[in-house]
Design a binder for these strands. Structure first.
Lengths: 125, 125
DNA sequence: AGGGGTACGCACTTTTAGGTAAGGTACTAA
DNA sequence: TTAGTACCTTACCTAAAAGTGCGTACCCCT
């Protein structure tokens, strides 16, 4: 009931306790935590998948946003693209090492959100 | 170099592998992973803080967005507000139990982003 | 001959998050 | 009297995110 008030470790290097405005981590966080970025990374945490599969799994995503999100994450070096010159086209996406590291932190977060979402969203308003 | 291809546990309850569009967790995730939501939660993970302190730490935030973000997170039951009827006004914010649970997952994520941001953002384009 | 699947790119429009600026209260200090 | 602090609210506006729809290339199936 009462506020926890635990100090919490926070192993960050923000010496002065300020999260600087121009910090590159803000940009990276924006990519990772974008509406569709999370879902794509999450989906790929289960292994290599192709375009159409990702489209199906991230329900509601438009083709434009899928392409855009994939491109951004690829530029960030979090996922890699394997295009096979076959007909019909086949392109597989998978996590890079860095992307996999990230997914290990992201998966539990989303799992927690999934488990607690109903209580939280219903409990209010 | 090569793609990892590890299956990854993924302890989620998405039986069919689809992340449903209307899922409440999408809304909750939007709040948590919003531009300022992350920073506020992160900041509060270090303990109770007041309005002006949060404003200073989340560099670049406007008063409007601070108020809005705090309100959303409070409605979600992630933070709690303690207003003291003193002059000048003093309002302290802290994480709730749920918010603290969440921060334990969020902190390492942001720490990772902070550690890897420079490499990632510079290495591209 | 026609329709459908796959993986996009491009242009256009809508929606929304966020920024800017001003005001408001209830004081205190100069 | 003017300024300043702390904690907001409200109205307005813009820039960025996201949606919509169209086109493409190539082949398969019927």
């Amino acid at each position: 009931m009462e506020a926890p008030l635990h100090p919490a470790p926070l192993p960050l290097s923000f010496s002065d306790g300020v999260f600087p405005a121009g910090c590159p981590s803000r940009t990276l966080l924006d990519h990772i935590t974008s509406k569709w970025g999370v879902l794509i990374l999450l989906s790929l945490s289960e292994g290599e998948q192709r375009w159409s599969e990702l489209r199906r799994r991230a329900e509601g995503i438009s083709e434009k946003m899928l392409a855009q999100t994939l491109k951004t994450l690829e530029l960030d070096g979090l996922i890699s693209r394997h295009a096979q010159p076959v007909i019909p086209p086949r392109v597989d996406y998978s996590l890079t090492e860095k992307g996999f590291e990230l997914s290990k932190l992201l998966v539990p977060l989303v799992a927690w959100a999934f488990d607690n979402a109903e209580d939280i969203i219903n409990g209010k308003r």
